[in-house]
């Protein structure tokens, strides 16, 4: 499965668009929302289920569409803290499920500090599609839940 490179936190602010000025332009074939990649992750999500051993867990929901997610995180005890394993459970639309699948794949093995600094565009880039304002809540639910879950990690 091809994943995209996450841009540095400096370029990953909401409102910036590292993929070019896509908003307001008609969709190209490549920007089709339900690309095979998204649908693959929706049908067979990676890292789905409950971890046998985890140090952190957090749940959240998107009241707009009823998407629910629970994140399980295994963080290494020594400094620098590393996210050694991650999984999620939950249900929702293709965008929220694919985002959770892609994001959990991408951040596994990364430093906690690095994950804390991720922003909306990191997720949008992983998805590789144009996300409308309303759907951004679906796309960002997993990131929000993961970052909330990491709040307790000192």
């Amino acid at each position: 499965m091809k994943t995209h490179k996450i841009p540095s936190p400096q370029t990953a602010e909401m409102g910036e668009d590292p993929l070019g000025e896509r908003l307001g332009k008609p969709l190209t074939e490549e920007e089709e929302l339900y690309k095979e990649n998204i649908l693959d992750h929706y049908r067979s999500p990676h890292n789905k289920g409950q971890l046998k051993k985890y140090t952190q867990t957090h749940s959240d929901l998107n009241p707009l569409c009823g998407d629910r997610i629970t994140i399980y995180l295994q963080v290494s005890p020594n400094s620098p803290k590393i996210l050694t394993d991650i999984s999620f459970e939950g249900s929702g639309c293709a965008i929220s499920q694919a985002a959770a699948s892609l994001l959990t794949d991408n951040i596994k093995g990364k430093k906690v500090e690095e994950i804390r600094n991720l922003g909306p565009w990191d997720v949008f880039n992983l998805l590789g599609i144009r996300i409308s304002h309303t759907r951004s809540k679906c796309a960002l639910l997993s990131l929000k839940t993961i970052q909330h879950g990491l709040q307790g990690v000192k």
Binding site: L27, L33, Y34, C65, D67, G92, C93, A94, I95, R135, C138
Partner: peptide, 13 residues
């Protein structure tokens, strides 16, 4: 096979 939100999005398009 499709979540309500995806149904509405495809119809919106």
């Amino acid at each position: 096979n499709a979540h309500p939100h995806d149904v509405a999005e495809i119809l919106a398009r």
